[in-house]
Design a protein around this nucleic acid. Structure first.
Lengths: 247, 247
DNA sequence: TGGGGCGTTTGATCCACGTCAACCCGCTTG
DNA sequence: CAAGCGGGTTGACGTGGATCAAACGCCCCA
């Protein structure tokens, strides 16, 4: 199968078919009719494998496509000159990466694979063309962008107004929900990111994250074994969010 | 001039014309050809006045339109059950409010006028229809959404990784740039929001904001008189961001 | 013209989280 | 099998910003 010119060496020539993909309900096609989804098959160019710790794109890369995570997971981050890192998000299968690039035709953050991963390449010019013809695609794409804005508003709330344990509880609940949506256990999962990356995302140092995990375990809320998490008392975690602290 | 059914009582029947508007370069029409902009005139429904401290919309309101600020300014915020507020943004003339509503067809934050203000109502269904026909509008709208994503990534950096004075310096520089873009002085401006609102946006308490202002004044970076700010040493402010703290 | 209230400033004290450091564990590599 | 290392945990201590509290100034309005 011939490789396309736009596709870097790391890309697979494999043609992707949204119509055949089992991530439909989590991804761009969500809510679209079968007929409309068939049209997407022509849009999604190819797949690309990204190995653990490799960049999918970097700050400054020219923007040509957005990506849908097929397998694996990613973090996106932005760096300060002095090296401080802020993780802006963790992305799992079905989620869209790269929307930051539309604004200036260049990426404004880095996207790094947390494990060996695999994305669908969605050339942005083609997406705009097709979404002028397919109303449901246009609408879905707008929802995807809006959802990202809403997500980040939530993170701002978390960073600006919550204390460490609230932040971590919110993070765990969020992870649990996303694993559930993907057919995995809500109560038991494997975190792909380090304590430092979690901390960066939550505006905390890794030691604080580690201590909060330990505290949760002492209080019987979760069971921690390195990156493996088991949620024992989801209600207790949720209570940390709606709380008065000492009830 | 007849009022339209969709328009609430607070709305003015005044027809808006993007083609005549002097905010073009700051607003949705940015980068569009005159001919394309003429098409927007049919899209933008009406204007609406919002008095100081009144809501433009609230969490839960059904989403029907996005808004372009014509005059005045707004804050958007999200509240926690226990009353904690997180300001998610301040919007000035030409900026678009309401993108958070697309995701679920209901608004997920509140928009409140900081002073007597005036917005253009852009019915979203019409915007989608027209942007299927006018490529430049489609593209501009995508850029507006992406720019919002990039902005909030910056705020995450600020909330997650910067100390109080860095946050406030970044805030002042950003305000200065936005005033400049609107033809106002880069060095002297009037803040529309309270110390508490600034603090909420920056993840700080109002006392901390106040102290940081005072410190900046002591160091000859700015001159503060209540809400009136004069930037004396913009380079000094910028240095606070790229810094080593004690140089 | 005077009073009341909101927003702001400033000081004194506290504490949640950061910093620094030691140590542990599981994996990799020679 | 040892050595090295990246990631994680835990403890002791320091500090930036929160909290609590008092007072001030501007503005609105009677």
């Amino acid at each position: 199968m011939p490789q396309r010119a736009v596709v870097p060496i790391t890309a697979e020539g494999l043609k992707t078919a949204c119509s055949q993909c089992n991530l439909q309900e989590l991804c761009l096609p969500f809510g679209m009719s079968d007929g409309d989804i068939d049209q997407l098959d022509g849009l999604v160019g190819a797949r690309r494998k990204v190995k653990r710790h490799q960049h999918l794109y970097r700050v400054g890369d020219t923007f040509e496509a957005i990506f849908a995570v097929r397998t694996g997971s990613f973090k996106t981050d932005v760096l300060l000159e002095d090296g401080r890192e802020q993780v802006t998000g963790f992305q799992m299968s079905g989620e869209i990466i790269g929307l930051d690039g539309i604004s200036t035709d260049a990426h404004t953050c880095n996207a790094v694979a947390l494990e060996d991963s695999d994305v669908c390449i969605i050339p942005f010019a083609n997406l705009e063309t097709l979404s002028r013809e397919v109303e449901s695609l246009q609408h879905q794409f707008h929802k995807v962008m809006s959802r990202e804005i809403v997500r980040v508003h939530g993170v701002m709330m978390l960073l600006g107004s919550m204390r460490a344990e609230e932040r971590l509880a919110a993070f765990l609940i969020n992870m649990s929900q996303r694993f559930t949506a993907r057919g995995f256990s809500a109560a038991e999962f494997h975190l792909r990111m380090t304590r430092e990356e979690i901390g960066s995302y939550l505006g905390l140092k890794l030691e604080t994250v580690s201590r909060a995990f330990s505290r949760f375990q002492e209080n019987g809320l979760i069971k921690v074994q390195q990156k493996h998490i088991r949620i024992v008392n989801i209600g207790g975690l949720k209570a940390l969010l709606s709380h008065l602290p000492s009830v």
